[in-house]
Computed example of a mutant assay.
Amino acid sequence: MRAAVLHGAGDVRIETVPDPSAPGPGEVVLEVLRAGICGSDAAEFSRGPVVTPLQTPNPRSGHHGPVILGHEFVGRVVEVGSGVTGLQVGRRVVPGAGVWCGSCAWCLQGRPNLCERYFTLGLQADGGMAEFVAAPARICVEVPAELTDDSAAMTQPFGVALHALDRARLTADDTVWINGAGGIGGFLVAGAAARGCGTIIASDVSDERLDLARQLGATHVLNATAGDVAAAVTEITGGGAHVAVEASGAPGTLGTVITATRRGGRVLLVGLPKQPPTVDTADIALRELDVIGTVAHVCDRNIPQALDILTTTPSLQAAADRVIALDHLVDDGLLPLCEGRVTGKVLVDISR
């Protein structure tokens, strides 16, 4: 089969690799229909290995060496292993991509994304940027018939955004500011809109991304190059946002986000900066701000939620920037994403 294989920084090859072996107990083999490119894929391509096991074996997955990318994808079940119930050959499914053990303390607390043996298909094991992929059946959720392949391929990153909003305890009564309207930021806007928030502010340095944020549900958009964003957010919200989200990962922005969070508010950390930021912890303490981290998603909860919203909200199709051929993954996908020339989600048609 053809697959996009990461060999190192700047080295992703579309090459022929063996098909997955027959599914083991509890596994399925999927024919991949669409895959999405994530910022983490771009990071591995531009400066990897970051989390991929190219040089040393991953202790959780056991994988070592070049890895097939792709943790955002939709596929059709073509083989079912023993013990699998509820998934039939021919049905489309979205895998959550993260694999958890189910027995450690975090799994038993209902937090499988923090599992001590957690790993992700497409990062620490072969993923879905290929014609076929093997996956545990328990991480796969069936796709509604009316949802397109393009929309279904955006389920996993949307689930990550919904988990982040869960962590922030976002309610319809909250005002929310999302700093950084690219990739995950756009899904955070859409998630806040789906939860009925009346004031959703998006800020970015790109007018194109801000236009997309408005389409996805932002009530206010602010170009960060045009003035004091924190002052504008404070004015719009009448004293600061209840929930302020740092989704850009840009240097120096976390302090700005904290500044425009109201007393007793929540600061959600989504964007991952390349360098540790410096923040005023005294200000955080004296205004009783909650600073909240988030990672991945809770598959059984957030993937079905994402599928439901994608199915009932046609406007979310705007989150897809383009669909490219697998053969053009580097030139039309990874490089533009690394260079900031992408507005929404880039999807890959594996058949081309």
Rank of each mutant, 00 (worst) to 15 (best):
I324T: 08
R262L: 04
R322F: 05
G127R: 00
T313L: 02
I200R: 13
L307F: 08
I309M: 09
I37L: 15
C115L: 08
V189Y: 05
G182M: 01
G8V: 05
I303A: 12
I14H: 10
A134I: 09
L69H: 08
C140W: 00
I184E: 10
N302M: 07
V267W: 00
C197D: 00
Q109R: 15
T256R: 15
D150T: 10
A230P: 02
V77F: 00
T311G: 13
A152G: 10
T343H: 06
S61N: 14
G183C: 08
A105V: 11
V243Y: 01
G83Y: 04
T85Q: 12
V94Q: 00
I178F: 08
A202C: 08
R352A: 12
E246C: 04
D283I: 02
I37A: 06
V205M: 13
V17H: 15
G333N: 11
V257G: 03
G110H: 11
V80F: 03
A318Q: 14
P23K: 01
A194I: 07
A325N: 12
L329E: 10
E27S: 01
K345R: 15
G10K: 10
R352V: 05
G90Y: 02
A105Q: 11
V84Y: 01
V93T: 00
R60G: 02
T311E: 12
H220M: 02
R301S: 09
M1Y: 11
I139T: 11
R111F: 07
T199R: 09
G102I: 04
A137P: 13
N113E: 14
V74A: 03
G96C: 11
A153T: 02
G127D: 01
L210C: 10
W100H: 15
L254K: 07
T52C: 15
A241M: 03
I200N: 12
E79I: 01
A285V: 10
L254C: 06
L337N: 14
V342L: 00
L108V: 04
Q305F: 06
T219K: 12
T281S: 14
L326N: 12
T225A: 15
M129S: 09
H163Q: 13
E15L: 09
D150K: 09
V267T: 01
A218H: 06
C115G: 12
I236E: 00
R209S: 12
A22N: 13
G183L: 08
L272P: 04
L210S: 05
V342P: 00
V143K: 00
L326V: 06
H220G: 01
I258H: 01
P112D: 09
G217F: 01
R262T: 13
T120G: 14
A213Q: 04
I258C: 04
A320V: 15
Q215S: 13
L114P: 05
G196R: 14
S315F: 02
L337W: 07
